[in-house]
Design a protein around this nucleic acid. Structure first.
Length: 460
RNA sequence: GGCGCCAUAACCAAGCGGUAAGGUAGAGGUCUGCAAAACCUUCAUCUCCGGUUCAAAUCCGGAUGGCGCCUCCA
């Protein structure tokens, strides 16, 4: 498989560093509020990548962090800790907040059929590993102390800015954040912060009580679970300039080698062709989709239909289209399942190859979806194509085997009574009465669908 | 102000020099008392202007338009 590496700006063949297992780390959520569907796009990307690697025969070990401490309101060490701020506003402890939103997060990724990484690790449970790095970076001269913390000295790391093509001088001129005068360089960043007494989350260190900087958690935990050097690191494009740049600086300085071989970044989800925004109310949650009657998996389908490295535009019209496509695809799968006709073996091979080739080329799942549809729509319905499609679904994760659009729902007695009357009217070929009853039922919020096997009543 | 991305049918979206995948909507059809659903068929020369080439949506230059980051965010 070839993937685009943000670090080298090239597509590269992915070969496990240890010749056995791809070790990948993905930046996870900061659990201070609900994750919106934009966040989910990145986690879906991680999932598509892992499933594809598995499909193509790679062994994979994946790790994702849960950030429950240290992530300040600004990525570049300004402002309050996000967890603390939320805790303060809601009169709960940071631990309560973390617990609530971690559960919500796991629930959401479950609904989106995102496999859990092999290791899900919490920042607050790895303070020792972080302090170990901080201590050594300080001792090795990569960091210095100020009145409020320990800062990484980017002048000691010549490659700083390589990932994002940073023009450090230009950055300084454009910086809008207040300048911390104790920092030697504006881009120097905190790896450890000294804690004021009232700070709830704090741990003992050689500089007194404190808490970790945000970026250090990923360096410490990835190293703990994946080793000094590993294959893949994923995240959203927003992390390229600060978070990942800092991670590279810390990790590489710590092990004196290149820690991560390949960096992959997922583009943003936009809404109505613009930035997703909490203030405009477009930072939708998975539960918002459900409230409008969409399956979370319809959103998954939507994300499968565009390349991870391209911005995807979310609209309600779009999710509607995705849901319909998903329904139809499932119907087609069912049709193949129930058929005993023979499919052309060569054709099956062709589809299989097309699908693999698409995945192998930098995870081109939208292209692979073309093959999925061509296979599904093939004029001969065959159980072998059913098997093929279910094989593809190992990557897609759409649960194509379930019946959609025919879900049994709780029907109120009043409605089913009316439906009974309508059934009777139809038996009598009293079409006028039957149509009136259908209208009545419709006005009560239910929809009647006549099928060869009888009436189907659905909500909406 | 600095950096970068994108521009393909009504909408979403592949395409990476050899003559436009796929999905949704629309249109036509099969089925049905009707409707819906389902299924089948059908639907674009790639923002504009130059250039390179036997050949360009694909490469180069320019114009116009949209978006993102640099500030919280995946």
């Amino acid at each position: 498989m070839k993937v685009y590496n943000t670090l080298t700006k090239n597509k590269e063949e992915l070969i496990p560093l240890d010749n056995k297992t791809i070790r990948m780390y993905s930046c996870g959520p900061t659990v201070y509020s609900y994750a919106h569907i934009g966040n989910m796009k990145a986690f879906l990307f991680m999932d598509f990548l892992k499933r594809s690697l598995n499909y193509l025969g790679y062994k994979v070990k994946s790790v994702m962090n849960i950030t429950d401490v240290g992530h300040l309101v600004s990525d570049s060490d300004e402002g309050e800790d996000k967890m603390l701020k939320t805790a303060k506003n809601s009169n709960m402890t940071p631990w309560d907040i973390a617990s609530i939103y971690t559960d919500a997060f796991l629930n959401d990724i479950g609904k989106l059929n995102i496999h859990r990484p092999n290791v899900l690790c919490k920042a607050s449970e790895h303070i020792n590993e972080m302090l170990d790095m901080v201590n050594r970076l300080y001792d090795d001269g990569y960091a210095y102390e100020t009145s409020d913390g320990i800062y990484f000295d980017i002048s000691k790391f010549p490659d700083y800015g390589k990932l994002s093509n940073l023009d450090l001088e230009g950055q300084i001129a454009g910086a809008r954040v207040a300048i911390n005068t104790e920092k030697k360089h504006p881009a120097d960043f905190a790896i450890w912060k000294k804690a004021p007494k009232e700070h709830i989350m704090q741990w003992e260190s050689r500089w007194g009580m404190g808490y970790p900087g945000w970026h250090i958690e990923c360096s410490a935990m990835s190293r703990k679970y994946l080793g000094d050097q590993f294959d893949l690191h994923t995240g959203g494009v927003d992390h390229i300039p600060i978070h990942h740049e800092n991670e590279i600086a810390q990790s590489n300085a710590y092990i004196k080698k290149q820690a991560v071989k390949c960096w992959m970044h997922c583009e943003f989800l936009q809404v109505d062709n613009g930035k997703m925004s909490k203030s405009i109310g477009t930072a939708y949650l998975v539960s918002d989709l459900e409230k409008k009657g969409f399956e979370p998996l319809a959103f998954r389908y939507m994300c499968l239909n565009a390349h991870y490295s391209k911005k995807l535009n979310f609209t309600w019209e779009g999710i509607e289209a995705a849901q319909k496509s998903l329904n139809r695809l499932s119907n087609l799968v069912a049709a193949h399942k129930d058929s005993d006709a023979e499919a052309d073996s060569d054709l099956i091979e062709t589809y299989k190859n097309e699908f693999r080739n698409a995945l192998e080329d930098d995870l081109n799942i939208p292209l692979a979806m073309g093959t999925v549809w061509n296979a599904a729509r093939s004029s001969v319905k065959s159980f072998r194509i059913y098997q093929l499609l279910m094989d593809f679904d190992k990557v897609l994760g759409l649960n194509l085997d379930i019946k959609r659009n025919e879900a049994e729902e709780e029907i109120p007695e009043e409605i089913s009574l009316l439906a009974q009357q309508r059934l009777q009217a139809r038996k009598n070929k009293d079409w006028k009465k039957s149509d009136e009853l259908r209208d009545t039922i419709k006005s009560l919020g239910y929809f009647i669908n006549d099928t060869p096997s009888g009436q189907i009543i659905k909500k909406g």
